[in-house]
């Protein structure tokens, strides 16, 4: 029997499956969002560590006093990073960090069977017990809190709220 193995795996198919959860439940959207936010926040984390390190001396720390270096470097950093596009990017990062955190708590609980229903006899009228209201409520809470974090980030970067 000749079978076509290529149907099983190709990169366009893998990426589409991973990144486009259309037609599936919120759990599948959570999987995609958790993965995308994780990768983006990791990139931000690496850049953050590098940039803060550069700010306080960078590779010149051995022969330039860090404080003087930072004083001289501050204007450069501000010119480089303080622009509307970058600030808007940081707002998105704010959303992603909050979402990944709260949804991460939800996934940790679910991975230990907490927040899910108990196994029982099949009831054809009921949705799967793993799609429990509590677990889904935490997902929506992660969206809500992430949006709140984004609003706070808008204020932190653009100063729009009144104190």
């Amino acid at each position: 029997m000749r079978t076509v193995r290529s149907q099983a795996r190709s990169y366009p198919l893998v990426l589409k499956t991973m990144l486009v959860p259309v037609g599936y439940t919120v759990e599948r959207w959570s999987y995609t969002l958790q993965r995308v936010t994780g990768v983006v926040v990791t990139l931000y984390f690496v850049l953050h560590v590098v940039e803060t390190g550069n700010f306080i001396g960078g590779p010149n720390v051995w022969y330039v006093p860090p404080k003087d270096f930072a004083a001289a470097y501050y204007q450069h950093v501000k010119e480089l990073l303080h622009n509307p596009v970058f600030d808007a990017g940081l707002v998105v990062i704010g959303w992603m960090v909050a979402f990944h955190t709260i949804n991460g708590i939800r996934l940790t609980l679910a991975h230990f069977g907490i927040t899910l229903g108990k196994p029982a006899r099949v009831d054809p009228e009921s949705p799967p017990r793993s799609f429990s209201n509590l677990q889904r409520a935490i997902f929506w809470a992660s969206i809500a809190l992430a949006t709140f974090a984004a609003v706070y980030s808008v204020d932190a970067l653009f100063g729009v709220l009144s104190g």
Partner: peptide, 17 residues
């Protein structure tokens, strides 16, 4: 825990759980 398995199971097995 993408849950797609439980979504499509025709017998209510709920593999994700």
């Amino acid at each position: 825990f993408a849950g797609s398995c439980s979504q499509v199971c025709p017998k209510g097995v709920d593999p994700a759980l």
